Amino acid sequence: MSVLDERVGPFPGGRIGTGDVLGDRTHEGVGRAVTHAEHVDDFDMRHLRYFLSVVRAGTVSGAAQELRISQPSLSQQIKRLEQRVGAPLFIRSSRGVELTAGGRAFLREIQSIPGQLRSAIAAAAPSPLVWPVGVCGGVPAEVLAEVQNGLTGQPTDGTGSRTEPVLRMRSVSTADQSELLQHGEIAFGIVRLPAAVPGLVRAVVWDEPLGIVMDAGHPMAHRPRLTWEDLSAQRLLWYDEGCAPGYADTVPAQLAALGWNAVLHPIDQDQQALFVHELQTADDVVALRPRLAVQGDPQLVWRPLPTTAAPRERLAVTTLADSGSARHLRRVAARRRWPFLT
């Protein structure tokens, strides 16, 4: 379900005016908006959602399945959109669809509209409800609690009921979060840094040194300290391609500079059970995690890397720059002393 289909909590931000009087600049902006609206008053937001879904899926059939409508119906709606725009938006082939030059230009201009509309509706909503949050794999529960407490605050009405928005967290890879933020399908994301994507701001909520994680039955588990020579014979359980762009490349490079050219063993680290299972089924596989991320798990053992300059795991809350959610995140970061990155 798209966020266009549900009411969501407000992103605290300023109103365009107070009382019955608006500033001259606001009047000018409203005047321009009225003029623009005259030319799109027969435009259906549903068609934008359909267009964006086809772009994301890469096929009309895949988008139709995601939208839970028939493929012929979706094809007809896309044709109507192209007729309304006055130009073809897709090149169709047996492999799927590709954007035309006009389609790329259309996407560039409209992809932020759902998020902007969502923010506008949320800002005016009298009753805050839900903020969807995308969470990358392997995020410790402590981080989720810190983000929950930071973004939503505590009940303040004296009755014990929640007066701030509720976060609805779901697993979304770092690679996919930017697109979902642009489309307005999530309000915030939790990502591993570095994750350089233009148009986003970030607040760091977790910054811890990485160490070696292994199964409690691993041959090296009894050693209090490990050496680079010990690690040279070990494969590194690591993030699957595209799961943690930036971070997935940076850390192995840092390890190589320290003396460990690790052979990577990639898996989907969104599933903790799979992560533990991989460590249990091989004597030459270890992983990297901060100590607090595995503390208290009797199946796992943590050991520091043999260096005083260990790579670090930095997790950040991210959202669209120049948005109500960005202004809210900046205020929360200042209050909770989260380093804020632009």
Rank of each mutant, 00 (worst) to 15 (best):
Pro155Gly: 07
Pro155Ser: 04
Val166Gln: 07
Met169Ala: 07
Ser161Leu: 12
Ala145Leu: 15
Glu146Asn: 11
Val147Ile: 15
Thr163Gln: 02
Arg168His: 11
Glu142Tyr: 06
Met169Asp: 02
Ala141Ile: 11
Val147Gln: 12
Thr152Trp: 05
Gln154Arg: 06
Glu164Met: 06
Gly150Asn: 14
Gly150Phe: 08
Gly153Trp: 03
Arg162Ser: 08
Gly160Glu: 05
Thr156Gly: 11
Ser171Leu: 13
Gly153Asp: 00
Val147Pro: 03
Val172Ala: 04
Leu144Asn: 09
Arg162Asn: 13
Thr159Asp: 09
Pro165Glu: 09
Pro165Tyr: 08
Gly158Glu: 01
Thr152Phe: 04
Val172Thr: 09
Arg168Gln: 14
Arg162Leu: 10
Val166Leu: 13
Glu142Cys: 12
Ser161Glu: 07
Gly153Arg: 00
Asp157Gly: 00
Glu146Gln: 15
Arg168Tyr: 10
Pro165Met: 09
Leu167Val: 05
Pro155Lys: 00
Gln148Pro: 03
Thr156Cys: 12
Ser173Val: 08
Asp157Gln: 06
Gln148Lys: 07
Gly158Trp: 02
Val172Gly: 04
Asn149Val: 11
Gln154His: 05
Gly150Lys: 07
Pro165Leu: 07
Pro155Tyr: 08
Thr159Asn: 02
Glu146Lys: 15
Asn149Ile: 09
Val143Glu: 05
Leu151Gln: 02
Gly153Gln: 05
Ser161Pro: 02
Leu151Met: 14
Ala145Asp: 14
Val166Ala: 00
Arg170Thr: 10
